[in-house]
Structure formats: structure tokens, C-alpha cells
Design a protein around this nucleic acid. Structure first.
Lengths: 338, 338
DNA sequence: AAGGAATTTGCTCGCGGGTGCAAATTATTC
DNA sequence: GAATAATTTGCACCCGCGAGCAAATTCCTT
């Protein structure tokens, strides 16, 4: 009979050690740790007792290598200015984790392309890569996908028509129709759309949707200003430009912002640079419903993305129960900024 | 001569394939990809050419298994309400990534303890675990460390006296002295400290430091209110309590907040619930210098953590060039809220 | 050109556990 | 109780690469 070493000696405990202690084979130990494996009640108990005694936990690295399944998902993102990212991150990690998935966070700096991030992910054998509300270039993506195999590539909270890609996103079209209808009931005449940087791909569909509905309803075109980034300073600049360079008579009476952080910057600019009142002089709407949107300082009318549902859809994709893009309706949140 | 398979056939390319194409052994391929390995210029070129042709990239999983070094760091956190977390996350991932470290993000829900997170991390063989600005229980930590070996455990942007642990943190003591001095020059008489939840361990040293300096300078004690969490609603409640339950004559003339998100909530409460002016009626200071602190709406006086330096210290620890705790001075940022 | 040092290359063995099948055990039927 | 079916267990082989040493090659020196 082999000596079982004291449990705190440097060497780590493997399935073999547990097997020896439990008096079974290594493979029985593996089965004990596997959901619905073919194993008798008795041996499982024996194994579990031995495992607990030794403080054994399966090595996920070795398991991934052997099984070609890592239970790892790469979360790729590049825009860390938006507090909404934090919400997405939190929900994604929590949901995935509670379903047995680990998350590898890959920060893709704006300058470099997606390939490096995807390559790094694939080198760790992730089962899927999730581009999280991230702008990226479709062409780069194409080549990256060609060269390096990432089993599944999901675009989360954003939209890409790339056929090698799955989109999970809020239903922007529906959302903008609601915002549009809302502004109409508030007798808005001249809305102005404030969009993030104008990128080639992986965009949101908010601007187009809003413009289309507004044109359908009123026949008027919606002017658009693109900011230099998704942060409130960029929004302040945009508002300075819009209101600074046009005569007061043609000032917009509503700012429809692509997301909350732009909306908050816009509100600050309106109030502190132009002394305007929101919503009396200008109404403002956002998108995402970040925590700050509910603060008494902003009370922002916005649209909440259905993150929980979106996470569930992601799980379905990971479990291969789904393989098509999906657009989930969110919820319009009316507050006093409009 | 072996047939080289077309590069896009399902099977993934291993070092063996590259070796065959380059006409060298598998180990030479490995050396070509290793910094300062003993290999001739000629073979390295041959290997690299072959690798590029096949689209080969080393499998990091297999490498970790074989070498007992994963180049993976677990980032463990649990408080996703604070936008400052996003800054920390961004910096950490980016710094680590650019130095060859992958980051495993582990979300530790407030309810459960650190053990589960640490266990999960160790199962993936992380080289180190970083608790990121996270409250946790020291006792749990102790047992978790005993049972499961995580090679290095770093407490980042927080402090723990646990000897199995390394702390990398902003120098809170210095910081609070500066804030304290600043308030004295502004003739503040009755500061009130707003702290986050009162936890057992892994706390910040801000409250004690401020109270101590203030007492040294004025002989007065600083009253403290603990919020129920690090979000601005909790701060609003705290302010409601402080100002709602005491007569106007003894209202504080400054709110020293443990971080920016509390400070912002406090300012909102002062302005919108009590109609007070900041800083004329009450001065407010924060900590962290989150992006919003610079917005025209808040213009918050705060203290910026030296995140860049802290990340560099972390790298030193990962590379085993350092094995002691370190407290880095940050920078006091004066704005108009005080 | 020979001898030795320095450099480069190849190889055995192992990291820890999964797959899929064959052997062994247990349960079921008549 | 024997024969068969169902369940449980054991095993050879593999996943892709690294440590460390031995063999082979190259470079220097005299």
C-alpha cells in the first residue's frame, strides 16, 4: 500500500492520489467529478470523501488539453470609458461563472486590431470569444478568423453582419421607435442626434432607426453630430459645436444621444455652458440606463438593455443550443430629462 | 517526406507540423519561439517562415501544463458599482497583457466568500491572484490559502495585514494628510467622514488616517457615517441621515468621502434634497479621481491613485523581483467642490 | 589539421486528465 | 440457479509542449 503524503507538502494532489486513497482507479475519480457519468453511488461517495480529505480539485488546464474544451470564454473589449461596460462585464462574468464558464478578459487597445486579441484568445483555447460592445474593423476580423480558429465569435451589444459571427444585441430598431414616439408626444420639433465615432462596422443601428422613424412620422431629416469618442467630454464638445455655431432660432429642442454617457455630457454642456434648462429648453435622451442615469442630478430618460436575457442567449450559444443572431427587446425608461 | 496538410483543414497546427515543414525537430521549433533560447539564427528564420506559412501559434495551455507556469493572473473583484473599478480593470489588463500575462476575471459575488474564487483560479493554474479593490473576510482568506495553493496573492488598491498576502496600494495615510491640510486652509471646522460599509478586513486606511490628522491639528473628533454600499444611492441615504437628523447649527461644513462615487452621491443629496450649495455651504472631497469627477457638474476635489505605478509594482511581484508590500503616493487634485 | 571548447540540436519522459472500448461486476429474467 | 442484460470499472493511448541532458555540429586555437 502506497504512503499517502501529508496534504500540505508542496506537490499538488492529482486524481491518482485520490484514487489511491479511495481504492479505485484514476478514471473512477474523474467520473465522480463529472455530472451524469456512469458511476455507482458507493464509489462516488468514496471518491468524494477521499478528495475532500486531500483537498483535491481537478486541474482544469489538463482537462482542457485532453478534452478540447476549455470552458473558457474570452471577453474582448476596447472602450473602457463607458460605465455601461462595467455593467456588461459584471453580468457576463457572473452569469458565465455560475454556469461553469471562466472568463478571460482581453483588452484590445483602440489602435491595434482585433486579430491580436483573437489570436491570444485562441492560444488559450477558448471555446468562444465575445466582442463586448466593441467597435472593430470587419476586414481585420475576417482575416483574423481565417488564420486562427476561434470556435465561436459572438458580437455582444453591437451588431455585425459578418456571417462568421453571431450577434446578440438589444433591439435597437424597436428602441428608437419608442424614443421617437415619446418625443413626438412631447411635441419635439427639431431633434438632433448625437452619435459616437462613425465607424466602418460593428455599429449600432440606433441612428439610422431613429432617423427613419422620425422621417416617417414628420417628413423631417434628423441632423447628426459624431463625437470623437464615447465619453462625456466628447459630448460636451459636440454640444458646444451644435449650439455654438447655429443661431438660437434653429437650436434643437431635443438631443437624442447614442448612449447615457454622451447624454450626461450633453446635459452638463447645456446647463453649465449655455445655461439651458433640461427638459424645458432642450430634452435629452440616452441609452443603456447606467446607474448614474437615475441620479437626481440627471434623471435621464433612457432605454435599458435587456442584459440578463442577452446573457442567457449567450449561454444558449455556448451550449450549442442556438446558432443564429438575436435581437432582444429592452425597456424604455422615462424620467424627467424629456 | 511527409505531406503537409492544407492549412485550413480542421486539425490544428502543432509544433510538429512546423518542424516537419522547416526540416528541424519539434524542440527547435519551441526554441524559436522562446526569448533568449539557444538557437542559431538560421534555424530560427527557417522555423519562423514555416510557422507563418502554416499559421502556427504555440498552444499556451499545453505550455502551461508542461511548464508549471501559466502566465495567467486571476483578477478577483466583487464591487462592480464603482466606476473606478473600470479604470483599475482597464489598466491592469492592459499592463499585464502587454507584458505577456493573460487575465482571468473572476467575479466574486458579495454573498459568497473568497474561497470559491480562489479555488477556481487555482484550478486554472494561475500564477497569481489579484484581489482588486475588494472587501473580503480575512479568516476565509486564511482557510482558502491553506487548502488550495495560489502561488501569489496580491491585494490591490486595498490593504490587508495578512502575512500570506502582498499589498499594493495607494498611500492613504499621505493622501488623507493632504486632504486634511487642504480643508484646514479652507477654514473647515466640522468635517464629517462618509465611509463605505464597515468591513472586518481588507479595508482602506483612509478613515483612520483622516481622523488622526484632524485630531492632531484641531483636537476635534471626526464623526463617521457608514454607507450600506459603495454606490451613490447609499451616499444619498447617508447624507439624508446626517443632515436630516441634526439641527442646522451643527451641520457639517465638509463631507470627506471615502471615494468619488460616494462624494458624487453626497453632492447630489446636498443640492437636490437640501438645496445647499457646494462648496459654499458644504465642501465635498472624494477619492480616486474617476472621469466623472472632472465633469462640470461636479468638479470634485479628489485624490488620484497612482495606478500606473501600482501596475508596475505588480509586474515586479509577478516577475519575483519584489516580495514586499508597497504603498505608492498618489496625487491630490484640487477642484471647486472644496 | 587535430584537439578541445562552445554552441546547437534531438530526445526521453512527464504534466494531469479525457475518450472510447473491453473487462468485470451487478441486476434481472425465466 | 443459469443465462442474459445492464451497469460499473479499468486501461491504452493521446492532447501539445517543456525540462534537462546527451549527441551532434560548429568554432577556435595551436
Amino acid at each position: 500500500m502506497t504512503e499517502i503524503p501529508d496534504q500540505d507538502i508542496e506537490a499538488s494532489i492529482t486524481a491518482d492520489d485520490v484514487a489511491a486513497l479511495a481504492g479505485v482507479s484514476r478514471w473512477t475519480v474523474a467520473r465522480a467529478f463529472k455530472k451524469d457519468a456512469s458511476i455507482s453511488r458507493k464509489s462516488r461517495d468514496k471518491v468524494m470523501a477521499a478528495a475532500e480529505k486531500l483537498g483535491y480539485a481537478p486541474d482544469l488546464l489538463a482537462a482542457s488539453l485532453a478534452s478540447d474544451r476549455s470552458n473558457l470564454v474570452a471577453l474582448i473589449t476596447n472602450d473602457f470609458n463607458n460605465p455601461h461596460k462595467l455593467v456588461l462585464l459584471e453580468r457576463l462574468t457572473r452569469t458565465l461563472w455560475s454556469h461553469g464558464w471562466g472568463t478571460l478578459l482581453v483588452h484590445m487597445s483602440d489602435s491595434d486590431d482585433a486579430s491580436a486579441a483573437l489570436l491570444a484568445a485562441s492560444q488559450r483555447r477558448v471555446d468562444a470569444a465575445v466582442m463586448m460592445g466593441t467597435r472593430f474593423d470587419d476586414k481585420v476580423l475576417e482575416t483574423a478568423l481565417g488564420a486562427r480558429r476561434v470556435k465561436k465569435l459572438v458580437i455582444f451589444a453591437r451588431y455585425s453582419p459578418n456571417p462568421n459571427t453571431l450577434t446578440i444585441s438589444c433591439d435597437d430598431v424597436l428602441a428608437m421607435r419608442e424614443i421617437s414616439d415619446h418625443l413626438l408626444t412631447k411635441s419635439i420639433r427639431r431633434p438632433h442626434y448625437i452619435a459616437g465615432p462613425n465607424t466602418q462596422s460593428a455599429k449600432l443601428q440606433r441612428k439610422e432607426s431613429f432617423a427613419r422613424y422620425w422621417a416617417e412620422a414628420t417628413g423631417a431629416e434628423v441632423p447628426v453630430t459624431y463625437t470623437s469618442g464615447y465619453d462625456f467630454n466628447a459630448a460636451i464638445e459636440a454640444v458646444m459645436q451644435i449650439f455654438g455655431e447655429t443661431p438660437r432660432e434653429v437650436w434643437p429642442d431635443a438631443l437624442v444621444c447614442e448612449n447615457d454617457i454622451l447624454a450626461i455630457g450633453a446635459m452638463d454642456a447645456l446647463r453649465y455652458r449655455f445655461g439651458l434648462d433640461v427638459p424645458r429648453d432642450v430634452a435629452v435622451t440616452g441609452f443603456d440606463d447606467i446607474p448614474l442615469a437615475a441620479s437626481p442630478a440627471y434623471n435621464l430618460t433612457t432605454y435599458r438593455q435587456p442584459i440578463t436575457e442577452m446573457c442567457l442567449k449567450l449561454l444558449e450559444i455556448l451550449d450549442s443550443k442556438r446558432s443564429d443572431s438575436v435581437f432582444v427587446p429592452g425597456r424604455f425608461v422615462t424620467r424627467t430629462s424629456s
